[in-house]
């Protein structure tokens, strides 16, 4: 009941409190306006390209060769989608199993050690993953099926990158299952696996979905790891061993020298990426809000 300060009575007539309120209010406005600014600037910068080229050319031009005035983003959009879907298809189940391991099956000591390890992994910079992929994974794939830098390498590295986050999020949604449910299950004489399958997992379901969506958002937006292992050839891949280029890699590679419409077109691709991520984040928030029931 007495949780926070309220406004029901005219504010305290004290100078310091007014000053404080002003200061806090300015801080919060800045924090809240960052998102507005990001969206505003992305749109402002992409307007020239949209005006000169139109939306259609981003989908139907022969290819992406800004030097030759062709701006088809589709290969990159598909590259982003393929690597993301591949990565989440790998990291989702593995992350879920890892969460189950840590939450239920590992002995307590090992579980806490393992948990810390995963937490540590979640902080490893993407550039380190990319570097390791470049010097270890890509040569291995090259031996198996040349050329090496490929969609497969991208999927594997991306999956590794989002695994710790996925596992942590899944763990926290498992941990949120109320202990009364577990006691109830125990009272019914359910064994460990039956409790998991019939009580814990259904109760944690919406949390697990949120975890998957957030991990997908992370994979969509990841730049460095895919930039370093995917080969960055603009093409629609015919097999997983083909090199590809993602939206993010494209921006990172070309922003340095892009001018005029080319630069503006890169901002258009930024807007596309932002839209995809926003849809996912909104979906994640929404699925998190759905009440849990078994």
């Amino acid at each position: 009941m007495f949780k926070t300060w309220s406004s029901s009575i005219p504010s305290f007539p004290y100078h310091r409190d007014q000053l404080l309120r002003w200061a806090l209010w300015s801080c919060a406005s800045i924090a809240g306006l960052i998102l507005v600014f990001i969206i505003l600037f992305l749109i402002l910068e992409s307007v020239p390209a949209l005006r000169h080229l139109g939306v259609n050319r981003f989908m139907f031009d022969p290819s992406w060769h800004p030097g030759e005035n062709t701006f088809n983003l589709m290969p990159m959009i598909l590259g982003t989608l393929f690597t993301t879907i591949g990565a989440i298809a790998l990291a989702g189940p593995i992350g879920f199993c890892s969460a189950l391991f840590c939450h239920c099956y590992a002995p307590p000591r090992l579980a806490s050690l393992y948990g810390r390890f995963i937490e540590l992994l979640a902080g490893i910079p993407s550039v380190v993953f990319g570097f390791w992929g470049l010097v270890v994974l890509v040569p291995l794939i090259n031996q198996w099926h040349p050329p090496g830098p490929s969609m497969l390498a991208g999927i594997l590295i991306l999956a590794m990158m989002i695994l710790p986050t996925t596992s942590l999020l899944a763990q926290s949604s498992l941990a949120q299952v109320p202990t009364e449910y577990l006691r109830g299950a125990a009272a019914l004489g359910l064994g460990r696996w039956a409790t998991l399958r019939r009580v814990v997992i259904p109760a944690a379901k919406s949390g697990l979905w949120t975890a998957a969506l957030l991990a997908t958002g992370r994979a969509l937006g990841e730049t460095m790891a895919v930039l370093m292992v995917c080969g960055n050839v603009v093409q629609i891949p015919s097999s997983i061993f083909d090199p590809i280029r993602t939206l993010t890699a494209n921006m990172a590679l070309e922003m340095a020298y892009a001018v005029d419409d080319h630069r503006s077109a890169l901002f258009v691709s930024g807007v596309v990426l932002l839209l995809m991520v926003l849809i996912l984040v909104t979906a994640a928030n929404w699925s998190n809000r759905v009440p849990r029931h078994v």
Binding site: S6, S7, L24, L42, E222, T223, L273
Partner: peptide, 29 residues
């Protein structure tokens, strides 16, 4: 002070949630 700034603080919280999900390359742009 969330009660004194009701809907505004709600809006700020939402905007921060979205901000947390924005890819770093977009921040770069």
């Amino acid at each position: 002070l969330t009660h004194q700034f009701g809907w505004m603080s709600n809006l700020i919280r939402r905007s921060l949630d979205v901000l947390a999900g924005i890819p770093s390359i977009v921040f770069g742009l």
